[in-house]
Design a protein around this nucleic acid. Structure first.
Length: 312
DNA sequence: CCGAAAATAT
DNA sequence: GATATTTTCG
């Protein structure tokens, strides 16, 4: 039978930004570095990488001076590729920015799902999601790509939902698994709880929530306690934190005007004034708490991830 | 800009 | 070879 759809909302409360957790959410992600100017990447494929090199949270950039008290350092986890090593040190090619492959970790995916859930399938478009996620370094293409796959995942599930089980989600926490979802397509997806509404949009009723961006308020001036979700990234990253973002550049100036936006400002994290009348503080949309996720017991895959929930 | 498909890398 | 992610096309 239908599980209580309304209950899902309750869950949000738990994930919702807690007064403590909630705060600036600026997740640093991805390592914009790239020390390989023309790195010779042979078309060959050798298995390697993903080794936890445990790249420390990168020592705080010396020069710094970026944000007074915040701005999480790049918590990106660079899973450097096997080789490298030597050269990495200090190179700053700076030119040729090539972003390493983004590794979607469960936490990051969760944030993605959360954002989509809050936005609603209707407004869940790459740009919006990306903005809501507020993950520094995340690009629209990254989200779009993942969104595409995520939609397929949802669709696959819809077809299978049959009666039994209903379990749309394969049980995150416990990794219930078993589910009917092939491990292939759902490895990562199954990790995050899939809001019920995702399975049937516009069906039945309740078109709850509108374009509302969460983010309550924040008012906790605590010490420097920034949480950073880890964002992993990199295929061959050579660390170095040079965040840069050569991402688009023009505002909505397409020949065709799409339709107006229900809300949200435009462009990257620029000051977006109110959103459709929702009192929202600019920036720092939300900060969810990441919960422990046991990795899959499946063999094999293991992306490191950590979420230092600040706890200093 | 969004959506899906093809291409590439791992 | 398969999967994940990126890039290109519509």
């Amino acid at each position: 039978m239908r599980e209580e759809d309304s209950n899902w909302f309750s869950r949000w409360e738990e994930e919702l930004p807690s007064p403590d957790e909630l705060m600036p959410l600026s997740q640093s992600l991805i390592t914009p570095d790239l020390a390989m100017a023309f790195d010779i990447r042979n078309p060959n494929h050798h298995h390697a990488q993903q080794q936890q090199s445990s790249v420390q949270p990168a020592p705080p950039p010396p020069s710094a001076a970026v944000q007074p008290s915040s701005q999480p350092t790049l918590a990106e986890f660079a899973a450097d590729s096997g080789d490298l090593g030597s050269g990495a040190a200090g190179d700053e090619p700076a030119r040729t920015l090539k972003r390493p492959r983004l590794v979607w970790t469960p936490q990051l995916h969760k944030r993605f799902v959360d954002a989509v859930a809050h936005l609603g399938i209707k407004n869940a478009v790459p740009k919006t999601i990306m903005q809501l996620m507020s993950v520094d370094g995340l690009t629209r293409e990254n989200v779009a790509s993942h969104l595409q796959k995520y939609r397929l995942y949802l669709k696959r599930m819809q077809g299978l939902s049959g009666g039994s089980g209903g379990g749309a989600n394969g049980g995150s926490g416990g990794a219930g698994l078993g589910a009917s979802t092939d491990p292939a397509t759902d490895h990562l997806f199954a990790s995050s709880p899939v809001p019920p509404h995702f399975l049937h949009p516009g069906r039945g009723n309740s078109e709850h929530f509108l374009p509302f961006v969460p983010v309550p308020a924040l008012q906790h001036h605590h010490h420097h306690q920034q949480q950073q979700i880890v964002a992993a990234a990199v295929g061959h990253p050579h660390l170095q934190s040079q965040y840069h973002r050569p991402q688009m550049g023009h505002y909505g100036s397409s020949p065709n005007s799409q339709f107006e936006h229900p809300f949200l400002g435009r462009q990257t994290q620029q000051p977006m004034h109110r959103i459709g009348g929702t009192p929202m503080h600019n920036q720092a949309p939300s900060s969810y708490v990441e919960d422990l996720e046991s990795a899959n017991g499946n063999g094999g895959r293991k992306v490191l991830t950590l979420f230092p929930t600040g706890d200093d």
